[in-house]
């Protein structure tokens, strides 16, 4: 195949040009992608004294960076569930009147075992283990 001087230079320039553009685009795209911050490895957290925590109430506990909802039912049972709604990530709350877990964003409800019972949530809330050690409530990741 005969390639004249002009064509050869054009091809060379084209390849160089594309390479140059890629050399700009790649670092920019990589820059836009946020670096993964090291997830603090949390296996258990303390959530206060059992005696100070009244029945039929709840609180949100920081489990590393995950919010966990700790509930004390009317019959003094402790439940810990992920507080991130499985629908669109809002933080759920315990309703003292209905004794259910409710998400205000799109009216999703879960029972006290975290099962999604009405509204848009597609999955149940993840369960955490709760133990009471010398009156201190300790939440650990199940499994």
């Amino acid at each position: 195949m005969q390639i004249d001087r002009r064509k050869f230079l054009n091809i060379l320039l084209g390849i160089g040009g594309i390479g140059g553009v890629l050399a700009i685009i790649y670092p920019v795209l990589s820059f836009l992608n946020p670096p993964k911050s090291a997830e603090p490895k949390v296996n258990s957290v303390k959530a206060g004294l059992n005696n100070d925590f009244p029945a039929n109430s709840s609180k949100i506990i920081k489990f590393g960076r995950q919010p966990v909802i700790l509930i004390k039912t009317e019959d003094n049972q402790l439940k810990a569930l992920s507080a991130s709604c499985t629908h669109l990530d809002c933080i759920v709350q315990y309703r003292q009147d209905t004794k259910q877990i409710w998400c205000a964003c799109h009216n999703g409800t879960y029972d006290l075992n975290g099962r999604n019972i009405s509204g848009p949530p597609p999955k149940p809330l993840e369960e955490y283990e709760v133990k009471v050690v010398k009156d201190e409530i300790v939440i650990t990741k199940a499994g």
Binding site: I60, I91, Q93
Partner: peptide
Amino acid sequence: FTPAPAGIRPEWYFMFMFQSLK
């Protein structure tokens, strides 16, 4: 780390899309 407050909604001009999704 606080629950979403009741009555949460997007701005009115996104409402029709959010409502349809709901």
